[in-house]
Nucleic acid binder design. Structure first.
Lengths: 251, 251
DNA sequence: ATGAATGTTCCGGAGAATAAAACAAGTCCA
DNA sequence: TGGACTTGTTTTATTCTCCGGAACATTCAT
């Protein structure tokens, strides 16, 4: 499908982002520390960082370099691209408060699930993180909105790697699971991403029925009994998804 | 103070971010639309975008290009650099809920105030935005923690541009205002950034008394009467700031 | 089917990024 | 106090790659 773009392109830009990513991984690195962690030369790093500091994307403090808040400006644009994303933020918080469990709003990008909003104990830390769609409740809620051809393309592109013993790795099993999800209107994650963790999710639509993403609540198996997972949570999630749609209709 | 870094640097990287910024401003541009909005050539844009798509920082849909959620990964690192930032998130939401007004957590970077967390009607849209320190309650709360020399450097670097008629533009007046802020322990914004908008803010410290940022609540003058601004809100904000410190002490 | 518009590829040349080495500025330790 | 070491900054020659123009491919509308 995609043309091979490895040769095409700007290697300088690749270098810049290599540096930025290592900086993001481990904040507060000095130039020499960066030389050890990358394949880039000292003077090159110096020049790249100078540019990035000048542009405001990197901040220097006491000789150590940090990724700056300039990135917030850009990422927030992406995060508010669709008003539905913003509406979902509040609903995630409400869900978290009401259930006292972790909640999230997930969107698909490049065949991965990306956390756009998150409520929970380690709140914040998950935002922006990418997870395989087939091992998440929210991911399955999203996949259940696609037709089989699209799902086949997804499987073809990224595969069905297992995260736990429960992860669905067989395509046919996934098709069946998605069909079940379509029928009942909510998706369940039964320790498929992390052992000890169950989750429930529903797809979220705009007023014109475009898929926006998925709302999910998840927590430990000890509290996520069958009745809670299959009765109370689906209704709660449907309500919130509906409220998002209504919010969008009147804005 | 800073060496002139205009000549030094990587112009290719500048070009990349020029494209990214125009993309962030106006999402979903095509290549030809980008040629009109920038000084960059069609084939060059094509090559840059190919690279960025390959790296995952830009997403292409139906021939239009969008900034991708990859940026969330980087910006969240910055946003969670200090655990206090994460702790502040919840407090901002609580403040917003309890007062039913807008609330925010602001941090200083490059002599500007950056919204790290935000609660309010248009929630989300302000995150990552940068504002002049001297025209915000939160900004003045932060400045009040600096000594006069540091404030002088700030004035020297960015000046005291007015946003409204009430903005403090005289250095001496600012010094006096900051002294008053220090004495009473909270800062007030009296339509200094936007007419019709008043705000209150307090500095937030870590357990070792390092300045973290500032918590603020703001809203229309109609609701922000003197007693509310000078009595109820300061106490509320002090409480939340204290809770952040306590959270940090036990983590 | 024809033409316009946009995206993609190709190519030669200019210019910029690169790496190495020299230089400067601290820092540590004897 | 002084000298060896580390780290950051600057310089320079050379190579490499980024760039822009133009050709080519593709899509879309008429």
């Amino acid at each position: 499908m995609s043309t091979d773009r490895d040769d095409v392109g700007v290697s300088t830009t690749r270098k810049t982002f290599e540096l930025l990513e290592t900086l993001a991984d481990e904040d507060g690195l000095t130039i020499t520390e960066l030389t050890k962690r990358t394949t880039v030369t000292k003077s090159t790093i110096y020049r790249h960082l100078s540019t990035l500091v000048d542009l405001g994307y990197v901040v220097e403090r006491d000789g150590a370099y940090f990724v700056g808040f300039r990135f917030l400006e850009i990422s927030e644009q992406a995060r508010n691209r669709r008003t539905g994303y913003t509406a979902a933020k509040r609903k995630v918080f409400e869900l978290g408060q009401e259930t006292d469990e972790r909640a999230g709003f997930i969107v698909e990008e490049k065949y991965e699930g990306v956390y756009i909003h998150r409520y929970g104990s380690l709140s914040g830390t998950m935002i922006g993180k990418r997870r395989p769609l087939h091992s998440l409740a929210a991911g399955k809620a999203i996949l259940s909105e696609w037709d089989d051809d699209a799902v086949a393309e997804f499987i073809d592109a990224v595969g069905l790697d297992p995260s736990t013993d429960n992860t669905i790795t067989d395509p046919d099993e996934l098709y069946a699971e998605l069909e079940k999800t379509r029928e009942r209107g909510y998706a369940v994650n039964n320790e498929e991403h992390m052992s000890g963790l169950r989750g429930v999710a529903v797809p979220v639509h705009t007023p014109d029925e475009t898929l926006l993403g998925a709302l999910s609540v998840f927590g430990p198996t000890s509290r996520f009994k069958d009745e809670y997972v299959h009765e109370e949570l689906p209704h709660r999630l449907w309500d919130k998804a509906g409220e998002i749609k209504v919010t969008l209709a009147y804005s």
